[in-house]
């Protein structure tokens, strides 16, 4: 397994909080479904190539199929893990501090007085894993904190809303 957390040059302050560990299986389920779909399309393409005779080199086709399979498995298994390892969030009195990203790691800072409203969102997959997403809206677009434990997300939303309920001079 790739020990992403040990990567030396992360942008983040290590004190920020991790997402709920259940986010990893939830994301694996979601990316797994997408990867299966992609693999199905890839396989269909290879089969069509073979059947129409336009490219019928069987060993090469087999290698291409295996490469697709490997890519799908790696993406679905390790992708969510890497993302989870990179994800950090913290809600402070003055700002919301987020960090995310698979390869390009992005640290996002939203001054709390710039928050216009906060949404609580829970899709079917998230509900099954007991997770929820918080969406923070500002005048310059919105940012999501996914993979929070549903029981935890609600107090977080309430806290952001309370902190943000300050004079807004936009």
């Amino acid at each position: 397994m790739i020990d992403v957390a040990a990567e030396p040059n992360l942008v983040l302050a290590k004190t920020l909080r991790n997402l709920d560990p259940m986010a990893v299986p939830a994301w694996r389920a979601a990316t797994g479904a997408a990867a299966l779909l992609g693999l199905a399309v890839w396989t269909a393409l290879l089969v069509v190539l073979h059947q129409t005779g336009s490219f019928s080199n069987a060993p090469v086709l087999a290698v291409l199929f295996l490469a697709g399979l490997a890519l799908a498995v790696l993406t679905a298994w390790y992708g969510p893990l890497i993302e989870w390892n990179h994800w950090r969030y913290e809600i402070r009195d003055e700002e919301i501090d987020l960090q995310s990203g698979m390869f390009t790691i992005t640290r996002t800072l939203i001054p709390i007085t710039r928050v216009q409203h906060v949404d609580f969102r829970q899709g079917p997959v998230e509900r099954h894993f007991g997770l929820a997403t918080i969406v923070v809206h500002t005048a310059a677009g919105s940012r999501e904190i996914p993979g929070l434990a549903a029981t935890e997300a609600d107090p977080i939303r309430t806290r952001i809303a309370a902190l943000a309920n300050i004079h807004d001079d936009l």
Binding site: R107, L109, P111, A140
Partner: peptide
């Protein structure tokens, strides 16, 4: 500075090697 709504600092692997963002 107080007008900023969202600030983002991102760093891809190549940038991280050079400690840039």
């Amino acid at each position: 500075g107080r007008r900023v709504q969202v600030g983002e600092l991102s760093s891809n692997p190549l940038q991280r090697r050079a400690h840039l963002g």
